[in-house]
């Protein structure tokens, strides 16, 4: 991990940060295995340079962008966000990155574009977990365009002031703090603008358990466990889960008029 130049944090929360050791040793990144410690053990196999992000679909400036060009082009800032996993545990992570909105404005989506789809690298030689058909590879996720343009939505390239460790989704990943962690797709190689709602990996596997939105919603249980409370890593007692993971003021308006029971 190399240090990253960034401007000071502009969105902080008054909660203790999760220790770096926990952030980098307890991960869901099925491309490297399904145990929590597998990503830290095997993600070293992934080469993160050179790294090309292909931007495609309904936009005026599609193309292939080198990761270092992206990092130079958009000023980096620190964002301390809550991260709520769908498995009912959570962390507080100081990310370094730039708002996805800045990239989107730079590539100018057309007026037909309504969704943004993302894809993770697909290479079983570098990602041994992809040798088993646990999920349909490559991992894919998507946001509505207005969600993607929300100022909270971040493309992270680092954490704790350093470049992203591989197990956390190096060299570039999505962070959407009001959604469950599975929406935060890692090691992105493709960003595509579409008119129709793209398929997303966990939703394809079990649509009743993982909605397209993946919004943190304590009122809608996962069919196999309650989402009302969560265990913050490093704390003994469970704490109450907040609607939209505590970011309702910034994002609740995106979902006005939608049935709250479908927002999971």
């Amino acid at each position: 991990a190399a240090p990253l130049k960034h401007s000071p944090n502009r969105m902080r929360i008054d909660e203790d940060k999760t220790p770096l050791k926990d952030v980098t040793s307890y991960n869901n990144f099925y491309e490297f295995g399904t145990d929590k410690d597998s990503p830290a053990a095997y993600a070293g196999m992934m080469k993160t340079r050179p790294w090309i992000v292909t931007i495609a679909g309904l936009c005026d400036k599609p193309g292939k962008y080198g990761i270092d060009d992206l990092i130079r082009r958009f000023p980096l800032e620190e964002r301390i966000y809550r991260m709520r996993c769908v498995e009912a545990w959570s962390m507080v992570i100081p990310w370094i990155g730039f708002p996805l909105a800045k990239l989107i404005r730079a590539v100018q989506p057309t007026s037909q574009a309504r969704y943004v789809a993302f894809q993770t690298l697909h290479d079983p030689r570098q990602m041994p977990g992809q040798r088993s058909d646990i999920l349909r590879w490559p991992y894919q996720e998507a946001l509505r365009l207005d969600e993607a343009l929300n100022p909270l939505t971040l493309l992270a390239v680092g954490l704790y002031g350093q470049t992203l460790p591989n197990q956390n989704g190096a060299p570039i990943r999505l962070v959407v703090p009001w959604k469950y962690g599975f929406k935060g797709i890692k090691s992105i190689v493709r960003i595509q603008f579409t008119a129709n709602r793209p398929k997303t990996s966990w939703n394809l596997l079990a649509p009743r358990e993982y909605g397209f939105y993946g919004n943190v919603n304590p009122a809608v249980d996962h069919p196999r466990w309650s989402q009302a409370k969560e265990r913050r890593i490093g704390e003994f007692f469970r704490r109450k889960t907040l609607p939209f993971n505590g970011y309702g003021d910034q994002v609740a308006s995106l979902y006005r008029g939608l049935d709250p029971r479908t927002l999971y």
Binding site: T18, K21, Y26, K36, D37, R231, I233, G234
Partner: peptide
């Protein structure tokens, strides 16, 4: 005793 119960010891 040696802190080897992962980041989520209860689980």
């Amino acid at each position: 005793l040696t802190g080897g119960l992962t980041a989520n010891p209860i689980e």
